[in-house]
């Protein structure tokens, strides 16, 4: 029994090593003395600005569109909910670059809907709007799945009580459901934001990569890797620290929602 436990611990240590070793390698090799150069580096600072702008807009859109979708899914029949959940989950399991090709096929200048947009003088590829749409495509499922499960497990008696008190469906949603599930919505939004910040494949395919216009942090890391790998490592460390910050933010958020 004891031997089995030890072997399991050994496997667990190996599993932790798989994740930890690359991160440790990055932190050991990064030239810390050059980190300050990141702030004065045109590529890095422009990418940071573009990433913040686009990811925050994408996250806001995720919340505006995703929360009502999650609520609708939680109230739908099993059949509809299963179908909707499968559809919403597709971007999570899809390689991001395939998502980019899908966006290009639909909204590119020669795309299914892009042709119509072009006739109106609207061209989406290689714009910041395209970056936002790419981020929205890959990030929204994280919010929807997190919030929908919370909606389904919440106390439905409170909703019935609100109805009895004369609240309409919309007011019940905004004044009862949302305040009760605020923690999950925030946690879902943070997850979606983190995914949007890290988005690469769909963006580079649909929005391209042009400095100070559409180039986000992951694209900047990719570009810097070819001409200044030390700065690429520095920028990578910034992103790892951001990811760790998100995890801690989520942890405290989930603890708060659990206590509520």
């Amino acid at each position: 029994m004891r031997r089995t436990a030890k072997s399991l611990i050994a496997i667990a240590v190996l599993a932790v090593a798989v994740v930890a070793i690359p991160i440790i390698g990055l932190f050991v090799r990064v030239p810390w003395t050059r980190m300050s150069e990141l702030w004065s580096n045109d590529t890095a600072s422009a990418a940071l600005r573009i990433t913040l702008q686009t990811s925050l807009v994408a996250t806001a859109l995720c919340v505006l569109l995703g929360v009502p979708l999650a609520w609708a899914m939680s109230n739908a029949s099993d059949k509809v909910r299963t179908l909707a959940r499968a559809l919403v989950t597709v971007p999570v399991v899809l390689p991001p670059v395939v998502g980019g090709i899908a966006l290009l096929s639909a909204l590119g200048r020669k795309g299914v809907f892009g042709g119509f947009l072009s006739s109106l003088g609207i061209s989406l590829p290689f714009t910041q709007t395209a970056v936002v749409l790419s981020q929205l495509f890959v990030a929204m499922p994280f919010l929807v799945l997190a919030v929908e499960s919370q909606f389904r497990t919440m106390d439905r008696g409170v909703i019935d009580a609100a109805r009895v008190m004369g609240f309409g469906p919309f007011r019940t949603f905004t004044h009862v459901v949302l305040p009760m599930t605020k923690g999950s919505v925030i946690a879902g939004a943070i997850l979606a934001w983190a995914r949007a910040v890290g988005e690469f494949g769909a963006s580079i395919t649909f929005a391209g990569s042009l400095k100070a216009k559409t180039q986000t942090l992951p694209m900047a890391v990719y570009e810097l890797l070819e001409r200044d790998w030390e700065l690429a490592m520095g920028l990578s460390v910034v992103m790892v620290i951001f990811a760790i910050g998100v995890i801690f933010g989520l942890r405290s958020q989930l603890l708060n929602s659990g206590n509520a």
Binding site: G108, S209, A212
Partner: peptide
Amino acid sequence: RNALADTEAINASDLLTKVEMGEL
């Protein structure tokens, strides 16, 4: 470059694909 270009590609082939697709 920034005044003229709408996008950059990582290599020559990638650029040509975008022209063939009609996106550039």
